[in-house]
Design a protein around this nucleic acid. Structure first.
Length: 286
DNA sequence: AACAGTGCCAACCGCACTTTC
DNA sequence: AGAAAGTGCGGTTGGCACTGT
């Protein structure tokens, strides 16, 4: 299939995200949950335009990335500690550059963060300590496209970046890795609690804040439990954007999905589905 | 103070995989 | 079954901040 055109090709925004865009994306995801990244900007621009006269002119990919790497409320801020560092090294030895898998074993850390930390700190640190860290081949230097199923299917076998016996000692507990097939567990997929929360519960304003207690329900076993309200307040403090006025506006988004859906449909009809997002957003983006 | 070099990290790119129809 | 659409991932880049000269 052909690749979907990205931001630059359809006049969408690129580059650093503004606090306004963050707020839009956060509000939208709080009401709709993750997923449908492609349709998100289009829906968000319509809905937000009605309420706040601003729009989210980002491609779905960009939205997903921003959410996953920055806005997600379970993301742990701050420096990577020694224990985490040690874990990253061990996991990297096992898994290679499979950052998402590594991130899956480090709660609150993103693959991008770990990747950056590895490239900027750990690889140098290990080199300085005498470890031989085999670099991945830069894409531009590959004579053959990195094709094919082998690229990922053989990752477990080929991505062990260490050929140093010293490190092998450290990894002695994982010695079996060579002979034993490693079944890397899939990283726990984040699922915001508000998806399963009742409206009254989610917007009382007294919800528990930032805790990560696991739900006891079978279906919710993998949910990361934290307060939607608490998150918005944290977000408020973080970006300094949602003042009292915006807070009220944000509360508007607590309406049920059906209402939003109806509003979206009505607004789409008004626009006769000929939505020029640039035109919509033009007065809003200065 | 001004400039250059370096490091860090958010964001983008393009490919592969998965899901949907 | 296969094409299209959607999603996830790893590699890479660009810009900002910091440091040194």
């Amino acid at each position: 299939m052909g690749r979907a055109p990205c931001c630059s090709k359809v006049g969408l925004h690129r580059g650093p995200w503004t606090a306004r865009e963050d707020a839009l994306l956060t509000s939208y995801i709080q009401n709709h949950g993750e997923g449908n990244w492609r349709s998100l900007p289009k829906r968000a621009v319509l809905i937000m335009h009605v309420f706040m006269h601003i729009g989210l002119l980002r491609c779905g990919k960009s939205c997903r990335l921003r959410w996953m790497n920055y806005l997600r409320p379970d993301i742990k801020r701050g420096n990577i500690g020694p224990e985490e560092e040690d874990l990253i090294i061990r996991l990297h030895c096992l898994l290679g550059n499979r950052w998402s898998l590594i991130a899956g074993r480090l709660p609150g850390r993103t693959d991008n963060e770990i990747k950056n930390y590895w490239n900027s700190h750990l690889s140098k640190k290990l080199k300085n300590q005498g470890f031989v860290v085999r670099e991945g081949t830069p894409r531009s230097k590959r004579s053959v496209p990195p094709n094919t199923d082998k690229k990922r299917k053989n990752n477990n076998n080929n991505n062990n970046m260490y050929n140093n016996s010293k490190l092998a000692k450290i990894m002695q507990s994982n010695d079996a890795a060579e002979s034993t097939k490693i079944y890397a567990p899939k990283p726990t997929r984040f699922k915001p609690k508000w998806i399963v929360m009742e409206k009254s519960e989610s917007m009382t304003g007294d919800g528990e804040k930032g805790t990560s207690e696991a739900s006891s329900g079978t279906d919710d076993a993998d949910l990361v439990s934290w307060s939607h309200v608490g998150h918005v307040r944290e977000f408020d403090q973080t970006v300094g954007f949602l003042d009292a006025t915006h807070w009220d506006l944000a509360s508007d988004f607590s309406m049920q999905d059906e209402s939003l859906e109806r509003l979206y449909n009505e607004y789409s009809q008004l626009l006769q589905f000929e939505v020029d997002v640039n035109q919509l957003a033009e007065p809003l983006m200065q």
